[in-house]
């Protein structure tokens, strides 16, 4: 059996923060009217519908608010095709789109007390206004990324697969010791 590999092949980095490839991760893009999608989410995954720029976490995975008509489900890699099929079935003939995008992305975890200072070196985001369980789509250096906050010190960043090594290297570069800032204390 051919095993899927992640773009970063388990890369790790250590500096002002800990960086890690989260490995292959299941992701499903849902497009459609959010209340409609919410019904399918509830029935298939038991997950509630996130509010604007919010993340809902449950037993079987997470669901992220991506735009007024788009959600991203994050779950174990192997479960993505089955869940996508179940969601499609639950949505029936309704105008909605379910697409597995697990392989199109890379997922990087950024952990540490200085994570906000490090992320602020690449992302034009005000981290003073970024509570746990919220998500922000923005720019990481020169590419698009989505970032969400798992806890006080743990963040997840998702980017396109093709630029995974660019993003990882950029993070590792600005996380080098000596680059302490102290902006977010």
């Amino acid at each position: 059996m051919s095993e899927a590999v992640s773009a970063l092949a388990g890369a790790r980095g250590s500096g002002l923060v800990e960086l890690a490839d989260a490995g292959v991760t299941g992701m499903i893009t849902l497009r459609g009217d959010l209340p409609l999608l919410g019904g399918a989410l509830e029935s298939v995954l038991g997950l509630g519908l996130p509010g604007q720029r919010q993340v809902v976490t449950g037993q079987r995975g997470q669901v992220l608010w991506m735009s007024p008509d788009e959600l991203l489900i994050v779950l174990p890699y192997a479960e993505a095709p089955g869940v996508a099929a179940a969601l499609s079935a639950a949505l029936g003939d309704a105008f909605a789109t379910v697409a597995v995008v697990s392989d199109a992305r890379a997922l990087i975890t950024v952990t540490g007390a200085q994570a906000r200072d490090v992320l602020a070196k690449l992302m034009p985001v005000d981290f003073a206004d970024f509570p746990v369980a919220s998500v922000r789509r923005t720019r990481a250096a020169q590419v698009a990324a989505a970032l969400w906050r798992e806890s006080e010190t743990e963040w997840k960043l998702v980017c396109f697969r093709s630029v995974a090594s660019y993003v990882f290297e950029a993070l590792a570069t600005v996380a080098q010791p000596g680059g302490e800032v102290g902006l977010y204390r």
């Binding site: 773009a7 250096a141 020169q142 697969r161 093709s162 630029v163 995974a164 090594s165 660019y166 290297e169």
Partner: peptide, 10 residues
């Protein structure tokens, strides 16, 4: 290496 994004195929 990170002067600009370099997109890599799988």
């Amino acid at each position: 290496g990170i002067f600009q994004p370099l997109r890599k195929t799988p």
